[in-house]
């Protein structure tokens, strides 16, 4: 059975503004569950979920796992080093084997763009994209948006700038789609060698200087700079990147108004973001992490066919919740 999101969550490009709002609204009651002493409700009891990670990830995998466990699902983690993939099994064979084990959902992280869609088209289970190559990372986009909405209320007309390596960032793509659909004004800022050549056609504003971005924006989403970008020659050095594009206290001090700082993590302190910014008053970075669990609970719940209006009730759990604690 599928909810109002359809079978899978592959990206924010294919969602409507209403569907995105539905996920954000559904996440609200789930936030509270994580604040309890007993952080568990029975909404997905009996469901089997595989977390299929073909790429290293710590926080996304843990966040999904907590979300699944707090909804009482049975979970199995498959990481690339311990699976038959390293023995040369193809993704399509992996998919067929999962299908044969009658699992309910797959959370997939893969280094190839399109891998989540590839899997979704070949199995009946729900598929959640936990990051595919440089394509999309929808739950990260959603948790960023939820964090912004917590602070701004409505995102319509709000000015958000995504800073850094847009070219290789699935987080940037999901943010651009999601924010745009909710009516926010979106900009990007970074070295031109790390922006897609066709960025003009995304319908976003472009800043070549981070100072201009800070002057314009009400929130900056600061992307991690992957060190392989230096070795591949996209930019000369981390030192220069920090000098030209780093988010520093000095630069933020010149912001004309309040400005929120987001970072999808993990951070390179002293490269794209300075420690006194990451740990400072503008930062909502840890709120993002907290919201990540709620967003993932909402997505799992909705894809499993949960009724959004029952999310509030689901968190109560009643007698079944107690049963579950045994």
């Amino acid at each position: 059975m599928t909810g109002t999101l359809g079978k899978d969550l592959l990206g924010l490009e294919s969602l409507t503004g209403d569907q995105i709002r539905l996920i954000l609204d559904t996440a609200e009651p789930f936030k509270e569950i994580s604040e309890r002493a007993i952080k568990k409700v029975p909404a997905l009891r009996g469901s089997t979920i595989v977390n299929l990670f073909f790429e290293n990830s710590t926080r996304t995998r843990i966040s999904f796992e907590f979300a699944e466990k707090r909804l009482s699902a049975d979970t199995v983690n498959v990481s690339v080093s311990g699976s038959s993939v390293s023995k040369g099994e193809t993704l399509v064979d992996t998919a067929r084997n999962l299908e044969a084990m009658r699992i309910d959902m797959v959370v997939i992280r893969h280094s190839a763009s399109g891998a989540a869609q590839f899997l979704a088209e070949r199995i009946q289970s729900n598929v959640i994209n936990a990051g595919d190559g440089t394509h999309e990372h929808p739950t990260q986009g959603l948790l960023d948006i939820l964090t912004l909405r917590d602070r701004f209320g409505d995102l319509n007309g709000r000015r958000i700038c995504i800073c850094g390596d847009i070219l290789h960032s699935r987080v940037a793509r999901s943010n651009i789609w999601g924010l745009t659909k909710l009516g926010a004004e979106v900009a990007v800022c970074g070295p031109r060698s790390l922006l897609p050549n066709a960025i003009d056609e995304f319908g976003v504003r472009i800043f070549d200087r981070v100072e201009e971005a800070i002057e314009w924006a009400e929130a900056l989403n600061v992307l991690r700079l992957q060190f392989e970008r230096m070795t591949a020659g996209y930019i000369p050095s981390a030192r220069e990147y920090n000098r030209v594009f780093g988010i520093t206290r000095e630069r933020l001090d010149r912001a004309p108004g309040d400005i929120l700082i987001l970072h999808p993590g993990p951070m390179n302190r002293g490269v794209e973001i300075d420690s006194d910014v990451a740990d400072g008053p503008h930062s909502v970075i840890l709120e993002q992490v907290t919201n990540g669990v709620a967003i993932r609970m909402a997505v799992l719940y909705l894809l499993a066919g949960g009724k959004p209006e029952l999310a509030e009730a689901a968190k109560g759990g009643g007698g079944r919740g107690r049963e579950d604690r045994e």
Binding site: E13, S113, G114, D132, G133, T134, H135, E136, R170, R173, P196, N197, A198, I199, E201, F202
Partner: peptide, 9 residues
């Protein structure tokens, strides 16, 4: 182009 940028290829 725009399609490669959107698909992340």
């Amino acid at each position: 182009g725009i399609v490669s940028a959107q698909l992340g290829l």
